[in-house]
């Protein structure tokens, strides 16, 4: 079973991502901010991360900056409501697997997930 970490301060968006992927057999781990997410990374063998950017206390940029294992960056799909071209460019420069605006189209999401979960 693949372990998926969903990092978002909004329970509605966490539930929405889970609902979208429900047909697959995944184990979901949830975090409401970057600090909780880093703890989850230490305690679980995470296969894929969905990361929101704007969160209270420790945001998505904090999480990206704090990742020690740089290979993990290639397992991260950023899901953000921020539609600014400048934000997309900045986030992609981290080397993450993808940047999608909320809500992502199912085929886009599936394509990125297939690349990561080989």
């Amino acid at each position: 079973m693949k372990h998926i970490l969903i990092i978002d301060d909004s329970f509605i968006m966490r539930n929405w991502v889970k609902k979208l992927l429900n047909k697959e057999n995944f184990n979901f781990i949830e975090a409401a901010n970057g600090k909780e997410a880093l703890e989850a990374l230490e305690n679980h063998n995470i296969d894929l991360v969905f990361l929101d950017l704007l969160m209270p206390q420790y945001d998505g940029i904090f999480f990206l900056d704090s990742i020690k294992n740089k290979n993990m960056l290639q397992k991260i799909i950023v899901l953000s409501a921020d539609i600014q071209d400048t934000t997309r460019k900045k986030i992609l420069s981290y080397g993450v697997a993808g940047f999608l605006n909320k809500p992502p189209k199912e085929e886009e999401l599936q394509r990125l997930m297939n690349n990561i979960l080989v």
């Binding site: 301060d9 704007l54 945001d59 921020d82 539609i83 600014q84 400048t86």
Partner: peptide
């Protein structure tokens, strides 16, 4: 985000947002 992001993209600038 949609409204401010559209303004930002049209003005070709960048805003930082609070939660």
């Amino acid at each position: 985000n949609s409204v401010m992001g559209s303004i930002s993209n049209i003005l070709q600038d960048h805003f930082n947002y609070s939660v």
